[in-house]
Write a protein that binds this DNA or RNA. Structure first.
Lengths: 239, 239
DNA sequence: ACAAAAGTGTTGTACGTACACCCATGA
DNA sequence: TCATGGGTGTACGTACAACACTTTTGT
């Protein structure tokens, strides 16, 4: 299967020349341990464009919205086609509709998503590569701007919600959870204070298991499924 | 000029039958002093539909997106056509795109806006009426859901930004500002504590003028224009 | 034994809340 | 002079940051 950001769809191709077309793209974040030194980075998958406009440049995974497909469904499909997996968190980001953002008139409904590092397939997919979110090349269209906004939302939301759990496996240590926060926020957090904050939030369930490592074993926690990752208000009931 | 929520546009009418059309709607909030007793309510303008679907029902003001018009511009145009004025605050709310939200396939980019009560024209406009946001009739399409979400965003945002100033004239007393917060949040706020919070926030500039009323005159304040009403991150730079 | 991470305790500051109190004005 | 809203002072509780300290493991 070829993967390109210019995804032809019958209904779109048939549209009139001056029509407005609706695309759906997704910014998919995960965390990746950097090879050499210690450290973790926010990474996202990009797709190399195989046709004009912007042939050869990297772009966000996406495609045209199908006539019989909701926006959420289109975002999930996009994600499945790119990563082959369902996201641990998926939320609409923004609708981008500047007149000159593409040669033809395209309104892009952009989503952003989180997936757990352990669920990212190892084998590389054709034309897809994962990039460090803080060191992106020049992207197609206004996608640099879009990723910048998605990163801002991620950093903001990590401060007042529990979305960080969307980047961890089912069981994790507090140190691992803290590393997620530190990576996203880009600053050091006090282990003692972090422990108390997150313990008193009621979103964690301690288990009987421990992670044995180089030193004193750390207790493993589970995420409390009763608590939503983020409060999206009336829209929570949807999809 | 007639105002309907079914707004014909050449480019849309020419689109193929199975094409996806893009509409822009706006939830416009302002405050209105209730007639009889004391009290203020959040109100918004609705447009009576003059054609199917949902003929006769009330709907959000909106229209089709023009091919040579950005989303923001379309929202501003919508607002101007409804109220004849520029909003004191305008922000994209959400893109609604359920397949069955309209008989034909329509993706609606919804904005929400604030305007100052003193800038709302007195004379009523044909087919437009202002409704108490907390007591709406059944609206066309999914517009009840949309207003509910907009209200949630308004109440949320008033807690961590200064958008309340978007509902006041240039000069205002602290009691007036407090009434805005109380109306939106739906609860009483301690005058003494409210004063300190808002005074220490650095967003207010005291003037030499006082509002003389029934009792001790209250100092008038101005809004500090250097401070943005709300932090929208990287998107702030956009128009 | 020692290093290093897990986990606990203590203290100070900032901030929101509750509420008592004084001030200035119109009637 | 009195009622009322404008405006100040103060005490209390919670939340968080800083950091000293104890515990438990691998080597």
């Amino acid at each position: 299967m070829t993967r390109t950001a210019a995804l032809p769809t019958p209904s779109a191709a048939e549209a009139a020349a001056d029509a407005i077309r609706v695309a759906v793209s997704t910014v998919i974040f995960t965390l990746r341990r950097l090879p050499g030194s210690a450290g973790t980075a926010v990474v996202l998958p990009l797709v190399r464009r195989t046709r004009d406009p912007h042939q050869g440049l990297w772009a966000l995974p996406g495609g045209w919205l199908d006539v019989d497909e909701s926006l959420d469904a289109a975002a999930s499909r996009t994600l499945a086609e790119t990563t082959g997996l369902a996201p641990s968190y998926l939320e609409q980001l923004y609708a981008f509709g500047a007149v000159d953002r593409s040669p033809s008139r395209v309104v892009s409904i952009v989503y952003w998503a989180l997936i757990r590092p352990d669920e990212v397939p190892d084998g590389s997919v054709e034309n897809v590569e994962w990039f460090d979110a803080s060191a992106l090349p020049q992207l197609a269209f206004d996608h640099n701007e879009i990723v910048g906004y998605a990163l801002w939302r991620l950093r903001n939301k990590v401060g007042y919600s529990r979305i960080a759990h969307g980047l961890l496996a089912d069981e994790f240590t507090l140190a691992e959870l803290r590393e997620v926060y530190e990576t996203i926020l880009g600053r050091h957090l006090d282990p003692a204070n972090f422990r108390r904050q997150v313990e008193h939030s009621g979103t964690l369930i301690p288990t009987d298991r421990f992670r044995t490592g180089s030193h004193r074993p750390a207790r493993l926690y589970r995420y409390n499924q009763d608590v939503e990752l983020a409060d999206r208000g009336p829209l929570d009931a949807r999809p």
